[in-house]
Design a protein around this nucleic acid. Structure first.
Lengths: 204, 204
DNA sequence: CGTAAATTTGACCAATTGGTTAAACCATAT
DNA sequence: ATATGGTTTAACCAATTGGTCAAATTTACG
């Protein structure tokens, strides 16, 4: 029997290559040959370790989603001051999406095709927005923030974090004359700007 | 020579079918045969009227973009009260994206592939965000709203309008137990909620 | 009508794609 | 060393895809 080190090495190389290609080009745009080339292996090995393109894609999707969605809510467990919590969450979240710019669009895309894969992944991911909602409602009840539908606040927040990343190529051209450095600065400053914007809106 | 009525009829049918398929499935996911079937014509006619898939796609992209982006800024010409302007813009914008839910994601997607088609379309579209920026800056100078980077405000606004539409399948499951009617209500109420949220944040 | 041009169709093609398979390769245990 | 079983490869395949082309059909018009 061969050592598992080698096996895992190849299997790992495949998954890494698959991540790169799938995340950038989506399911339809991805060619198995390109993944094999990027992994530096024979195409047949893809089918040896993952049986089909669909299975390999599912593995990538699972990774992308687990990498992403849970972190959305993990930052919310603390018992910190609510505004500090918001500041921290937004800073962390913008940082994540900025460093993994392909993941949000990838997830949104595949979710918009009624791909059955994603439904299971979501259910399995144990996402629980109730923690969010409860905390927001608590702050409202305590008179710390204005009354607002928690769902609205949540979507506002995530929308402001994600949109500038997935719409980057367009926004960078229209608003920043395609100046990459300027846009990076813009994204960086959003870590505090968005938080300020939200807090200004909901504080009493 | 055949009457133009018939020709335009077929050409129109093709474009309509192409819109449907391309917008829903993207460039990679679209099959010429499916467009032909949806238009009820022979596949060869696609190449007769539009020379290639790329050309046909370009036509659809041009339509989608022209349908969409210009409207972003058109609502901003007026000399209305600034807050009324915001309310109106957001209401109109959310209405458009809600009724054309595939267009924003379609544009964002194709723009994230360095497809050369889109660069030209953008340049040709005559989009001018300066009207926006100037108006915002004016309101700041007049002391009507708090100081804020106009770019930040613009991205905040559009992000809050678009995200709940392109992320719908995911959000609807996670936050609304996949209740379509509830989500429609949610989107509808955002026409005022988002405006309130923004105005609360920037008003002095 | 008759004819020429525009339109429409079905048959066909070369290239690509995901996937299969049998043989080759290699590490290990006896 | 050699048999064993996991690993890797090259050759191959059926299906799909965008696209072509010549023939057939329809339309306009003298």
């Amino acid at each position: 029997m061969k050592m598992t080190a080698d096996k895992e090495n190849t299997e790992e190389k495949i998954l890494e290559a698959a991540k790169e290609v799938f995340l950038e080009k989506g399911n339809d745009g991805t060619r198995m040959q390109e993944i094999a080339d990027k992994a530096g292996i024979n195409k047949s090995l893809l089918h040896y370790y993952y049986r089909s393109k669909e299975k390999l894609f599912a593995a990538v999707f699972k990774y992308a989603f687990s990498q992403f969605a849970p972190r959305i809510f993990s930052a919310f467990k603390d018992d910190e001051d609510f505004f500090a919590l918001i500041r921290n969450f937004i800073s962390v979240y913008i940082d994540i999406v900025s460093k993994n710019p392909f993941i949000p669009l990838f997830i949104i895309n595949e979710i918009n095709k009624k791909n059955t894969v994603f439904t299971n992944v979501i259910k399995m991911s144990g996402i629980n927005p109730q923690v969010f909602k409860d905390r927001i409602q608590k702050e409202i009840n305590n008179g710390k923030i204005k009354s607002i539908d928690p769902n609205q606040l949540i979507i506002n927040t995530i929308g402001m974090c994600i949109f500038p990343v997935i719409g980057r190529p367009l926004i960078q051209v229209i608003l920043f004359e395609d100046n990459k450095a300027e846009y990076d600065k813009f994204l960086e400053s959003r870590k505090t700007e968005v938080a300020d914007f939200i807090i200004n809106s909901i504080k009493i």
